[in-house]
Simulated assay, not measured.
Amino acid sequence: MPAADRNALQARYPEIFKRPASARLAMPAMLLAALAIFGFGLVDLDFSPTRLIAGLHQLGWITMMMLPPDPGSSLPLYLKALGETLSIALLGTTLAAIMALPVSLIAARNIVPDVVRFPVRRFLDSVRGIDTLIWALVWINVVGLGPFAGVLAIAVSDFGAFGKLFSEAVEGADRKQVEGIRASGGTTLHEIRFGLMPQVLPVIAGQVLYFIESNTRSATIIGIVGAGGIGLQLAEQIRVLEWQKVSFLILMILVAVAAIDWISGKLRFAIIGRRAVA
């Protein structure tokens, strides 16, 4: 570039060519800070390459002990436990969605004023901030061991997540349909029923299907702490070092999750396609 043109650009855009030192050093400083935090974390958590290599050797030995997968005589029991896990995920997710839908309307800023919305959103944040595993431990002490505690744990945990997601879907809905119903003399309930719900229900259905898939894995984890299902069987076989049965249970979980993912994907695409046509 000719010097005259460069000088003209510098005179026209001085903030670009003469950036302050703080702006130039901000990115390197953040990178150095992130690197320092990463290094401190490795030291504080006692990260050791020697232990990692030894652990990989142990992992290889366990993997060899898992082959071939063999359920022994426990296949009917494992199939029943897998069905229990799928039931926990389905019932827990469904209960959470049913409870969260009316609450999400109260948490949407385009339906209620902020003085009502704010405490509801903070309540949902509090519920969502506690992990499903913690809720499982709580409900096990409340209602006892078994799948009922697992259903309640997933329902309560997903209630907070669904409340947030559903309310954001309501807030992002097109206002034209609502305004048209209002202009024709409709009440607030008519606006919600005929203006908002037809727009957000396909989004809500897609989110519920995704959570059913995700909660199948969560139901396996909470089963380990006593909430029933295949997780309980998996923890028991790991405890007694029956690695061939462990590998068979893991394969069952992987196949179930893959099947649910495929089915929910088809349903989500069908819902989205129907919405696009409508």
Rank of each mutant, 00 (worst) to 15 (best):
I224K: 10
P28M: 05
H190E: 15
R6S: 12
E15H: 07
E242R: 11
V246T: 12
Q244Y: 00
I53W: 10
R239E: 09
L124V: 05
V203M: 07
I272W: 06
A29I: 14
Q10Y: 06
E242H: 10
N110S: 09
L56M: 06
G39D: 11
K245S: 13
F17S: 03
G206M: 01
L31G: 04
P69L: 08
I53C: 08
R275M: 08
K164N: 04
R122V: 09
S157L: 07
L101G: 01
L67A: 14
P14S: 05
L45E: 05
I192A: 00
R6V: 10
I53S: 09
Q233S: 10
W262N: 03
E179L: 07
N141W: 06
T63D: 13
I98S: 00
D125K: 02
R182T: 13
I212T: 08
L31I: 08
T188C: 11
Y13I: 04
F17E: 07
I271F: 00
A36R: 01
L32M: 11
L45S: 10
G195N: 03
V246K: 09
A8P: 13
L25F: 15
S87W: 13
A96L: 03
G223R: 04
P28I: 11
G229H: 00
L52Y: 09
A8M: 11
L91I: 10
E179G: 07
M197C: 07
E15N: 08
D46Y: 06
V103F: 09
L86E: 04
L101R: 00
G228T: 03
R217N: 01
R175Y: 08
I250G: 08
A278M: 10
G163A: 05
I221M: 10
D174Q: 12
Q199N: 05
Y210N: 07
P20F: 10
L75D: 03
P2E: 09
A169L: 08
A11Q: 11
T93N: 03
V200T: 12
N7D: 14
R239C: 09
L9G: 15
A169Y: 14
S247Q: 10
E171P: 06
A8Y: 15
E213V: 13
V112H: 08
A23E: 13
G83N: 01
V255T: 04
P102K: 07
A258D: 02
I154E: 06
L189P: 07
G231Q: 10
V240W: 07
L145A: 10
A270G: 04
